[in-house]
Structures are given as C-alpha cells and as structure tokens.
C-alpha cells in the first residue's frame, strides 16, 4: 500500500464522521452574497499612490511627541485606550461631525452615497505567499432605502487604478432588494434572491443610534459580529457603520468619541483615501494589518478608510494597501436612481 492509497483510506475514514454541508448553509451563503460588502476580513490592495503625508503646523509637533509616548507605552505591554494624538484627531473629527448639517430622511426615501473603492485581489501560493497583486478600482453610486424596506439600486463603474477619475469600463446596475414584513421584496435582477421569510430590514438611515460616547461604545461592542478580538472588531464595526448607512451628526460625533476609547487605537502616518486625497488617520492594527479611518487634515471631516499591511504577520509585503475607500457624496433623495440636487448633499 503506497502513501496515496493510505491517504485515500484516511480520507474515507474521516468521511465517516463528517455530516457534510448543513441544510442551512446554502441559505447562509446566498444571504451573505446578497448583502452589500461589509468588512469582516481583509480584502484587497492598491499600490500606485505616493505615500508621503505632509502634516503642517502644531499637529505635526503633537504627532511627533505623542509617537514617542505611544511606543513607550507599548513597551509595558499594556493596551491603553487610544493614544493621545489619536484621541486628539478623533476629538477634532467629532467637533467637525457636529458642525455638519443634519440630513433628514423619511422611511420611503433613499440615502444616496457616491464613493470610490480601490481593492486588490491577490494570487497566493499555498504557503500564503502572495505571487501577484491585481488592483481593481470602482466608482459606486448606491441608493439604499432609508428604512430598509424599499428596493434600492447600485451602479458601479470601473475606474483606472492609477487615475480614479478616469472611467475604465461601462456602468453596471444591480437592484438591492428591500425587506418588508420579514420577506424580501421581489426585485428584477436583485442581488441574489434572499431566502424567503428570513430577511431583516437594513435601514440606511439610522435615526436611533446612541449620541453619547459611552452608549455608542457599548453599541459598537454589542453589534460586533466578526471573529476578531473585541477591540479590533469594535473598530471595524465603527467603519462598517459609517460606510453602510447615514449616521447623523450627533451620533457620528459620539462614534468618533467612542473610537477614542477603544484600546490600541493609534495614529497612522501615511493615509490616502481611494481618491488619492491625503489625510490623517487613526488606526487599529491586528495581525500585521492596519485598519484606518481617514480624516481631512484641515477640517477633520471623515474622507474614507483603508486597510494596509504594516507587518510580516499579514503575509503581505509591508505597505500593500488591501482596500481603500473615499466617500465623495452623501445625500437624501426620494427615489432609487434619482440624483441629488446640488446643495442637499454633504460628506460623512
């Protein structure tokens, strides 16, 4: 008996204890697929943009000073709440958020979001070594039902990774099925038929979010569903919340204040969003990957996020950008497919 035959025998033996796919797995897969992309795990990179970030004025000094503090603290192996300079950036971001006009949306309306996403797909070998990287940039226009009950729409257009303003392909339109009374609405060309009777509406306009840092912090931990450590997952959930829905100014300010309380949050130095805009970022790092929320370095408005490899444990070359986004426009409109009028939109 050679080793391949022994392996066959071993496989057959192991099969006796396997039950195979559970009856729920198919529904689960199709439901996952029908959902707009969240960020439960690292996705993809985009090289190409320069990485030098110029920070002017007093903040640069503050950053340098605080960097020392942060690295010193780390020597003791404690996980303090956000580093001092990260907390300062988040404080300014909270102030900036509060100064934004509040968009109002009724349950029948839609939240329109225009964004760029640049992502990398990697071909790897079995040892986890990346053998090639392919970058994919798309402009997204989404109309998500404010209440989650109406059918929304998504338009995407491929863009040139090196010059995201330039179209590199044709538009594709996908219906996003709403959910009413626990059942998905029928929608022509809907993104994956949702299993009947199993949906929960996903409101794009969240009016009921906590407005204090403490309550928001509890909310983030309570609503984290990934498999990462709690502090890592809470940070990711904060990003998901901003990307996946319209968060009103008071809640957004609370969100940034809550992020400042997450252990391990620090400043990231070279942050570019998917549109190539420079920003200051706060980051949470885990297993060699830095998850970053990026802010305008002058106004501290939220301008996007990204994931970048910063350590060997990621299995990627340091500096590889896995994924980046840029929020270009957010508005409330009456119909899916309707473009916002100038003056009614904002960002973040």
């Amino acid at each position: 008996m050679n080793e391949l035959m022994s392996l066959q025998d071993l496989g057959d033996t192991l099969d006796q204890e396997l039950r195979g796919p559970s009856p729920q797995l198919r529904d689960r897969v199709l439901t996952d697929i029908g959902r707009p992309p969240g960020r439960a795990m690292p996705r993809r990179p985009r090289p190409g943009f320069g990485r030098r970030l110029v920070i002017r004025g007093s903040l640069a000094v503050a950053l340098a000073a605080a960097l020392f503090t942060a690295s010193t603290l780390r020597l003791w192996g404690t996980a303090p709440a956000a580093s001092a300079q990260a907390a300062e950036i988040l404080r300014r971001a909270a102030v900036a958020a509060q100064q934004q006009p509040t968009l109002a949306a009724g349950p029948a309306q839609f939240v329109y979001v225009e964004s760029l996403e640049s992502a990398a797909a990697m071909t790897g070998d079995a040892s986890g070594r990346i053998t090639s990287v392919h970058v994919d940039t798309n402009l997204y226009e989404e109309w998500n039902s404010a209440s989650g009950t109406r059918n929304g729409l998504q338009r995407t257009q491929p863009r040139s990774p090196s010059s995201p303003g330039r179209p590199a392909g044709s538009w594709q339109t996908t219906a996003l099925p709403g959910c009413r009374n626990g059942r998905p609405n029928p929608a022509a060309g809907a993104a994956m038929a949702l299993p009947a009777g199993r949906c929960v509406p996903q409101p794009a306009y969240q009016a009921g979010l906590p407005r204090s840092a403490r309550a928001m912090s509890a909310y983030l931990y309570r609503n984290s569903h990934g498999q990462n450590p709690p502090a890592v997952q809470a940070f990711i959930t904060a990003g998901d919340l901003i990307r996946g829905s319209y968060v009103r100014p008071a809640a957004l300010a609370a969100l940034f204040a809550a992020v400042a309380q997450i252990p391990g949050v620090s400043v990231a130095h070279h942050a570019l969003n998917a549109a190539g805009q420079r920003g200051v970022a706060v980051q949470q790092t885990y297993r060699g990957i830095s998850e970053q929320l990026i802010f305008n370095p002058r106004t501290y408005a939220f301008i996007g996020e990204r994931q970048v490899a910063i350590g060997a444990s990621s299995g990627l070359r340091v500096g590889t950008v896995l994924d980046s986004t840029a929020i270009l426009r957010v508005a409330v409109v009456n119909q899916a497919g309707e473009f916002p009028r100038p003056g009614r939109s904002g960002t973040g």
Binding site: G11, L14, D15, L18, G20, P21, L25, R26, V29, L30, I33, G34, T174, A190, A191, M192, A193
Partner: peptide, 21 residues
Amino acid sequence: PERFAVLYDRHAAALHRYAGR
C-alpha cells in the same frame, strides 16, 4: 447575481468534504 447559486449547487459538497477532512 442569483445565477451564482449554481456554483454553490455544483461545488459545495466537494469543497465541504475536502475542508471537513
């Protein structure tokens, strides 16, 4: 997108068995 379901129907059992082992 719902046309993707056919890939699940064709390959899920084999993938599951392989991963299960």
